[in-house]
Design a protein around this nucleic acid. Structure first.
Lengths: 191, 191, 191, 191
DNA sequence: CATGAATGAGATTTCATTCAT
DNA sequence: TATGAATGAAATCTCATTCAT
């Protein structure tokens, strides 16, 4: 009945939650093992060591997120609709993978990320960077460095979602629409 | 010649830098001692243990930040000017205390913060919360939960400053003015 | 086609090589399984545990060696010819069972050998002991304790064969004849 | 009262004994710590890891042995006297450093020895190699490869000393003189 | 006061052994 | 009978904390 790779997935799921909640260094292998209901040694059957585990997890979700953003991207549409697509992508991804985006953000500049992880993350940023660059050329987006715009959107969105996760805010459609509008106003060029 | 509290301050300075750069759990007491040029044992003369140290540090900078924001607050002025005051406060504080705000943000929901730290942090948020609440009543601020607005401003600002710290962006007056405008547009009520 | 005991033999062969090359403690069951091209669990079908395996191996080769020495022993011949027989036996045995003698020597006083293994090894020594005892009585052999004479011959021979195995020396007939002569001079009574 | 470096020396002493008796892999850090009467963590203050410890130990005793052999070497004397010097050096060294020579021999081709250890060991062999090479040129030594001659002497001597350590033989002056004579006959050229 | 050597509890990791398939 | 995934006990190693100097 259980899927074949259940164990490996259980480990990844538990690791994601714990890394997001406590951070990499404060999460011990026994904690992950207990949460995943596997023996501690089992983790090492699937991942050579703790760093490989965290990098695997990081790359997995970064890739998934990138694909979610790229899927059905409205190439020919107006910039507002494209922004909506990206923002909805963030929301949908966060809803589907509870702790993933928060985990990504809080571990983005961690000392233990390997070259591959950093590169994958670079690819992810590129989506936003391209969007902003084109938007600036057309005069639709504020003339600020794309990196800065990304930071504002990303930083704001994730800080917000942390509140939702913690339960201090509820993710109503209304709130999310309002936040999207707020973020859009943060980056769009006001004439 | 050296002030009596020199060592204590050296320890706090080193701890701030290391906690901001590596996080609490990845920072060891010997690391702090080496960086502060004191013996590892000396840290325990000033702080009962590592958790007391991090809480002391957290409360110290949260309080300092709060005071910086409250100082010369333009009570009677217009909302845009008040926002400018708060934003300038963030910038000035970050310039004066290099890693402080980033340390605060990354450790805001850490498992080892004690009640006092959480309370102090609550006080800090209150400044922004009050600002937004009044602004919303007057129709100057977007009708979103204050917590959400704070998250957007704070999250965006800090994500940005991380880029500056890492060296990916330069903190020119121009950039900062642009970012302030962006953040203001994110929270203000657009008619 | 394959004999039913093939797997058992494969395991013993692999274990012999690995124990000789790395030693008992540095050799893991998975290593043996991989080398023998069987599953790790299969080893436990044939041997109750790792210690049983090593003792089985030890006794097997000690017995084999003993039989090789006893076979065609020139009872009535002169002492030099008997010595030649023993020495040739060592060489032939080593050629036939690559790592066996080296494995025996390096594990001779190991903490995990059981009573049976020690006893078997005692029997093996007895052959040499008898040879030396009789030789001393007839004045052909140096008046030293037989154990000492055995140590000299055995120790020297095996140290030499290690060099051959490692490739630092080549096992030419000439070399071996020279070494036999050397060993003989080491033990014979010089008038 | 205790010497300053007592702890480090205690660790090395215990490690030597245990490595000689059980081998590197069968000796655990807690075993060494217990024997040395220090905390397990203390060992890591002096040696980065177990491999560094064993290499340090190896190099220490190889060097000590080499120096013992070189000290008062009778350069101008006859070959028999030089051989006597070397043999006595082995005996004296073994008496002074109980397990050292046996430890060296049993770990000489171990997988964990680093380049420095192997080089030091090469230097040690050189002393014997030089002795045999010169001896062969003068026709005093058997025309066998020096490596082979070294193996015979070394292998024999150490195998013998193992018996002494284990208590199966007693190291009387008589026995040692006899063994020296035996070894000399093993290597000298018989006209 | 200040130090850093020493410690042991606890973290990471390995591996002999079991057992469901 | 054969397998190798799974396990947990035990090994290696780290580090917060203590304490003699």
């Amino acid at each position: 009945m259980p899927t074949s790779t259940t164990k490996r997935d259980d480990i990844l799921d538990s690791a994601l939650t714990l890394f997001a909640e406590r951070g990499f260094d404060a999460t011990t292998i026994p904690m992950i093992a207990t949460d995943a209901k596997v023996g501690a040694g089992t983790i090492y059957r699937y991942f050579a060591n703790k760093e490989v585990l965290v990098n695997t997890l990081f790359q997995h979700y970064v890739t998934l997120f990138k694909e979610a953003l790229e899927k059905d991207y409205p190439e020919g549409a107006g910039i507002r609709e494209q922004f909506h697509h990206l923002f909805q992508g963030m929301i949908r991804f966060t809803n589907e993978h509870d702790h993933a985006l928060y985990f990504i953000k809080t571990h983005t500049s961690a000392y233990f990320l390997d070259a591959e992880s950093r590169e994958q993350f670079g690819h992810l940023l590129m989506i936003f960077e391209d969007f902003f660059e084109v938007g600036k050329q057309h005069g639709h987006i504020r003339p600020l460095p794309s990196k800065a715009l990304i930071a504002i959107i990303f930083g704001g969105f994730l800080q917000l979602y942390q509140l939702i996760r913690v339960g201090e805010l509820e993710a109503s459609a209304e709130l999310l629409a309002g936040v999207e509008e707020s973020c859009w106003d943060a980056v769009r060029h006001h004439s």
